[in-house]
Each structure stands twice: as structure tokens, then as C-alpha cells.
Design a protein around this nucleic acid. Structure first.
Lengths: 355, 355
DNA sequence: TTGTAGGCGTTATCAG
DNA sequence: CTGATAACGCCTACAA
């Protein structure tokens, strides 16, 4: 294994000082154009690559962004990561990605690793059961920016990139109502997570605005897994007054719930209309195909990294603590009843102001 | 933002030399137990965290492993990553993950970034259309180990972690034959990738061993996407002698192919029996549920990182260039015909030696 | 426009 | 068992 080429080697070769070489390589304005050219070509000729560690050590920053994600195995998350990568690469940042697998314990461990790796900033989508934000304290106290995406923190001090979950949920629920549903059940996740709390809120608003009653019995809270979907279906099958509509906060759960209902002889959408959330490819696989809320993952990743880098560059508009991206209801067979129009326009007009 | 605590601070506090502190922190045997204890507690009391850059700079290694993955959006890949993370964390390595999104261009860019980030080793699953291995040359010439997983390189110089695709495919095909299929079509991906070439091989072997004819018309090669699945189905519908069995190298493609066939009025498994590959959760969503090859992703990730670390620690058994993990056929409705037994045992007995 | 000098925090080497 | 010293490669005052 040959020795690495350093700026000293280039300097010696061209009879210049390392300083000049360093400056040229960083495109410093105060270096002669010709000199720069000579340095560039010598660098590539010798196969020079900058030693990030020396540079990091010196500059006290790493050009690395940490990403904590609940799970990677969804189309949504993989799009988010792809968007993050694109922006990060363009800005010469590296990404360190780790999965919390929906547990606080791993999330805490991940945060610690990130901290010790001295990431310049952190992007987090919270695990299902994270209660407090203590594990991000070390970042705050060292002024390392932490930006949340999708599953954000309620604490106002933390910036976040989100969609308007209240509106999306309002839209989905309204759609069900327009399809004739009078007794809708909402299945959602841990209400500590903004996404689920907000969706519940949107659900309630929509019922209210359409003079439909809401009761605690209208909501099933679980972990939105496959199994949870099956269980929820069993619960529903045993209800006294069976619902005629179902709005589920996650496509996986919705799909397995729907399948269980279908197997029990329920006809979808006629007896029960169903809408999911995320617009996962699975929506187009299940029979009938599942209506869902589409969610701009790639864009969310891009925006999150872009904000973080802005912040790191000191250009941050510190007043901006929430960036909201648009989402969209995709209507498919699972919620479209014969003879019913898609009155999406009307639904939108009814939309309350939600900031 | 306060200044970081260094080993000097600890040393000063305890009236020791930085050298001793460094040694203690690295659990060097030649440090007095009491001294070590004192150093540990002082370190945590002051909130010391090691500066990886200084350490990396000095030791010329980064404790970082680069991972290049085609796409993250599958259950399989997310399991692989989870397995990798577990082993890497335990051994105090960091992971830098990036997606090639199935294109050589991004794969090359990723490799370059990894190289410049001075990863200690690289784990790669090749993109669909990667032809040559030139972009890994810089690693080779610097003695940076590159280990492939799943989609490996044929070049004998590269180590890899795989399943026995020939056997898995042989087993799947034999199963279809046992279900009475006489005219099976195999849908697979670019044959430059070992996984697809090997599966084709296993498919041929199984036909051969059961005295069924093989012709080029028995194989459809595409990119295994959703759309490709739909197209393949359309192709099949127009065939003169319609097949009665289908073995697809990827569940997503299989599912969309199957759905298209079903919509065209074909009954599955009776008219056409179908087996997929990967055992993605989607298999249990589609109707009828899809038989598939189950594949130990988590384990593959663990093994890949473990091998890499062994290699980096100089413990490598350089003679081991291929590690093969077990896989398993999961039989579901899409390939199970009434009145047919599951003669899996027989299939296994017929299995040819495949190294 | 270029150069000199010193230090970022750690660890390897050599010497007690 | 402990310590002094010198790198690792780069960058930033400051000086010329």
C-alpha cells in the first residue's frame, strides 16, 4: 500500500508552499489562476485526495449529517433518504444513517453514536414510543442543530419538516363521508407522535363539520403493524353497530385490516369503505386497491437536508421552525362507491385553517 | 458552545500524562487498574468524548464501513442494513450508507465518495446494470477490502456473501413441476448479475432433471419492476402455447404479473401456478398469496460486516471468498394446486451439487 | 499573490 | 507501569 499523497507532495513537486496548495485546492480567490491550474493538474496526476480527518480536526467540523429513521423498509423512507442523499452530496456532506426500529432504546443509542461521531447536524424522525427529548440535549447544548422530519417533536424549540396531517386527514375523512359513510372508525398510532395526534384531530374536525358524532369508540389506537391491522378487524367485526367507513393511518395496517374484513365476508367498499395513509405501492396490490394519502418523501428529504445546511451555513432563518409540504388524497376502489361522485373540490373548500 | 474536553484536561485534573490517559481510555493492559478507574470516572465527570478525527488522523483509519445498496425500499434490504448496523455498532464501527438506485452512474459516484471518505472497507450489492468493476480499483490498489453481498461480482478476487441461488431456483422450479406444471416460464433480471444468472441455471437444471424441454422462449428478461411484471403478463397472454407455471425472480414483479393475469381471467394457481423470490411482506397481501423464496437478510448483513471486520483485524481467512447462507421455499396458495402434495423432500433429494 | 509557523487531539515510539 | 516527544495532514493568522 503506497503512501498517501499530501499537499506537501504537491507543493514539493511544484516548488510552492503547502499553504498555496491548500488554498488552491479550496478555491481560495487569492491564488493566481495559473498556479491554481498547475496545482489542480498535479493533484489529479498524483492521485491526491484530501484527508478529511486532518481537515476536520483543524476546522472542527465533519461535513457529516446524522440521520435517525424509524425503519428503512418502506417506499416512503427510502425516498426520503434518496432526497437527502441528493442534496447532501451536492453540498459535499456525508450521511450517516441509522434505524431506531421504532424503539426509544435504539434511538437513544443512535443519538449517542451520532454525537460521538461529531455530526454537524442531526435529522430525526421519532420512534413510536419516544417520550422525552433528553437524548437530544447534548446536541442542543453544543449548538448542533437537530431538525425533525415527518415525526417531529412538539417542543417549539425544534424545527421540523412535515405535511399538514390535520388537513390530509380531514380530506380523507370528508371523502369517506361524501361516499355515504356515517359511522367511521379511525385507526391510528401512538398519539404522542404529532402525525397521529394531528390525524385524529383532522378526523374529528371532519366529523364535526359534517354533523357526525364523535366518540372515543370511533378510534382504535395500536402500533399500526400487520398484526394490529388483523386485530383491529376482529374488533370491528364484533362491534354492535358495525362501521361503514375506515380511515387508517398507515397502509400496511389498512391492508391487513381490509383483508381480514374481506375474508370475514365484508364487502369493500360497499359495506365498509377504507382509506389508508402513505400511498405505499402495496395500495395498488391489494384487492380492492386502497385509497390513500400521498406524501412527498423525496422532497421531504431534500428540504430537511437543505434546511439543515442553511442553518449550518449561518443563513438560517431562525424564525422558520416548521416547513409544511403538500400531500394529496389518491382515490382508489377501496373507498369509491358506485354512483358517488368524487367531490374533492367541495372537501377542500370546507377545509379549516390549520397552521 | 463550550470548549471540548480533551485528554489533556483529564490529565491535568489527575496530574497524569496525556499518554496514560490515552492508554487508559483505550483499555491498554499496561495501565494500573486504579489509575484506569480514576481516569474513567474523571472522563465521564467532565463529559469527555474522544475526538475521532484526531484519532483517525493519527491511526490512519476511520472505523467506518461504506455500504452501497441498490435500493433501500424493500423489507429485504432494510433487514440487511439492520443486521449490518448491529454488528458494526458492537465492534465500534460506523456505517455510511448510500443507494445506487440501480444505476452504474450513481454506483460509481457512491464509490468515489466512499473512497474519499476513507472508509476502512466497503460492502456492495451491485446495481442492475453494472458491467465492470473499475470503480472499485482504487480500493483494491490501496488494499481496502471490498466485500459483496447478494449481488456479487463474478471476479474471483472479490469475496461475497450470498445464498445458493441455483439451489433456491431449482427448488422453486421443482415445486412447480410437482404441482403438475409442464410449461414453465422464468422471468428474471439482467444476467450479468449472479443472482439472476444463477437462478436461470437452477431453473434449467430442474427442467432437465425432470425431462422437460428448455428453450430461450422459456425465459423473459426484464428489469423486474412493477411495469415489467405487467408487460410480461401481456406477453404471456399472447403466447401460442400458454405456460402453466411461472417462476419470477422478484416478488414485486411477480405480484404485478399475477394481478394482470388474474384480471385477464386466468385462474391462479390452477391455470398458471406462480412462485416469486424474496418473501417480501407483499406476498401475503396479494390474492392468492404468493409462494416465494425466503432469504435471510438480517443474517446476510451480520455476516457481511463480520467478515469485513475479521478481514480488517487481520484475522481473515483469505481462502474464504464465498459465504453461502441458507434459503427456503415458502409455499402459499399461488402455487398450491388441490390434490397435490408438497413433495419438498423429494425435490431436495434430487438437488445437484452446486458450489 | 505567496510563505512561515503553529496547533487541532490523538497515539506510536522510545525511554525511564 | 508511566512519561516526553514527535508526528498524522491540514488550515489560519500573520508576515512579506
Amino acid at each position: 500500500m503506497d503512501k498517501d499523497i499530501t499537499i506537501y507532495d504537491i507543493a514539493k513537486e511544484l516548488d510552492l508552499s503547502p499553504t498555496t496548495v491548500s488554498r488552491a485546492l479550496n478555491d481560495h480567490p487569492a491564488v493566481n489562476k495559473n498556479t491554481k491550474q498547475k496545482i489542480y493538474s498535479m493533484a489529479s496526476q498524483l492521485g491526491y485526495r484530501s484527508n478529511m480527518f486532518a481537515s476536520n480536526l483543524r476546522r472542527q467540523r465533519t461535513n457529516t449529517i446524522g440521520v435517525i429513521v424509524p425503519k428503512l423498509n418502506s417506499n416512503f423512507m427510502s425516498s426520503v433518504i434518496a432526497g437527502m442523499e441528493k442534496v447532501a452530496n451536492e453540498a459535499d456532506y456525508n450521511l450517516i444513517i441509522s434505524q431506531s426500529l421504532e424503539t426509544v432504546e435504539k434511538e437513544i443509542a443512535n443519538a449517542k453514536t451520532m454525537f460521538n461521531s461529531r455530526v454537524d447536524g442531526l435529522l430525526v424522525s421519532l420512534a413510536f414510543d419516544t417520550e422525552n427529548m433528553d437524548h437530544f440535549e447534548p446536541f442542543i447544548s453544543k449548538d448542533i442543530p437537530v431538525i425533525f422530519y415527518d415525526r417531529v417533536s412538539d417542543h417549539k424549540q425544534f424545527a421540523g419538516v412535515v405535511i399538514d396531517n390535520v388537513q390530509a386527514s380531514y380530506e380523507a375523512t370528508t371523502h369517506l363521508i361524501e361516499q355515504g359513510c356515517q359511522n367511521i372508525i379511525h385507526i391510528t398510532g401512538n398519539l404522542r407522535r404529532n402525525v397521529y395526534a394531528d390525524r385524529l384531530k383532522g378526523f374529528k374536525y371532519a366529523l364535526l363539520d359534517n354533523d357526525l358524532p364523535f366518540s372515543d369508540a370511533s378510534v382504535i389506537i395500536n402500533n399500526l403493524s400487520e398484526d394490529a391491522g388483523v386485530e383491529a378487524a376482529q374488533q370491528i367485526l364484533q362491534m354492535d353497530s358495525r362501521p361503514d367507513g375506515l380511515f387508517v393511518s398507515n397502509d400496511t395496517c389498512a391492508v391487513h385490516c381490509m383483508k381480514t374484513l374481506t375474508h370475514a365476508g365484508i364487502s369493500i367498499p360497499d359495506e365498509i369503505a377504507v382509506v389508508g395513509f402513505n400511498n405505499d405501492p402495496i395500495c395498488r396490490v391489494v384487492e380492492p386497491s386502497l385509497s390513500s394519502i400521498d406524501y412527498p418523501g423525496y422532497e421531504m428529504g431534500e428540504v430537511a437536508v437543505r434546511s439543515l445546511i442553511h442553518y449550518l451555513s449561518g443563513l438560517a432563518d431562525t424564525s422558520v421552525t416548521r416547513i409544511t409540504l403538500r400531500s394529496e388524497l389518491i382515490i382508489r376502489s377501496s373507498s369509491l362507491r358506485k354512483g358517488k361522485e368524487n367531490n374533492k373540490g367541495k372537501a377542500l373548500a370546507l377545509l379549516p385553517e390549520t397552521k
